[in-house]
Write a protein that binds this DNA or RNA. Sequence first.
DNA 1: GCCGTTCTTTTGAGTAATTCAAAAGAACGG
DNA 2: CCGTTCTTTTGAATTACTCAAAAGAACGGC
Lengths: 140, 140
Amino acid sequence: MDTDFDSALHEAGLRATAGRVAVLEVMESMAHTDAERVYRAVSEVLPTTSIQSVHNILADLTTAGLLRRIEPAGSAALYERRIGDNHHHVVCTRCGAVGDVDCVVGEAPCLTPSSAGGFTVQTAEVTFWGLCPSCQNAAQ
Amino acid sequence: MDTDFDSALHEAGLRATAGRVAVLEVMESMAHTDAERVYRAVSEVLPTTSIQSVHNILADLTTAGLLRRIEPAGSAALYERRIGDNHHHVVCTRCGAVGDVDCVVGEAPCLTPSSAGGFTVQTAEVTFWGLCPSCQNAAQ
DNA sequence: GCCGTTCTTTTGAGTAATTCAAAAGAACGG
DNA sequence: CCGTTCTTTTGAATTACTCAAAAGAACGGC
């Protein structure tokens, strides 16, 4: 079953190593995870790995386009497997939980700045801030 | 001339200390600066200060609503004096330069997620990524 | 104007997340 | 199967920031 990941890695120009396959595997079942949690999950199947290797692998997979990296204010960097669509995120201001937002109403035109001071804009990133369901309950 | 800042601080429930006034002063002439640059500017007028104090002051002024803090991915936290409007930012992917974006075309409706997975959304933050004028030149 | 309470800053240490670098080890094309 | 090249390991370093205790400054009341 590693073959899927092997070929994905090869197509991205990367060698199919045990560490990379293991990271891709655990990312299948985790959304918006930081390096530490990936490291703990990978350690169970590949005990010789280190947190530095995981950082290295996550960086390689991100630049190869196999993962996406987000950095919400106040959190460590988070990685997600869902790529290719430019979806957005909701972050809980209380606990830091992250959810996906498929799209914003109005879509593309919204993401055009009215004036960007001479910058050429390539992408737009939207982060919504609010309370996740369980923090809504905790706050009554 | 400190009186403006003094009363602003008092109205925010903070004491008007030399450090806080100096930070507000230098922030007038700097947009999107990190703690280190604020520290260097404040040091010239208040040599006894420390980077920790500057961090502390910036945090106090931010929670008091006198400054706004942004954390673009890949940069240290940046502070800006422009508050009260919810404007957005353009960040240069090459050099990290930051510009203000007054508003996005389409405005309010754009900033409503189509579905937020049970999160209650309070604010939306938009970050545009692209190249600043001088990096456009550097890349020809 | 002085005083005491309370808020701030200073000083120094500590932390988290990440990066860097050199040497050992694994992939893969030939 | 072998050698080159890419990866991981190991260990140290860095950046940006937070924490905490003691010294110092603001400001309201007298």
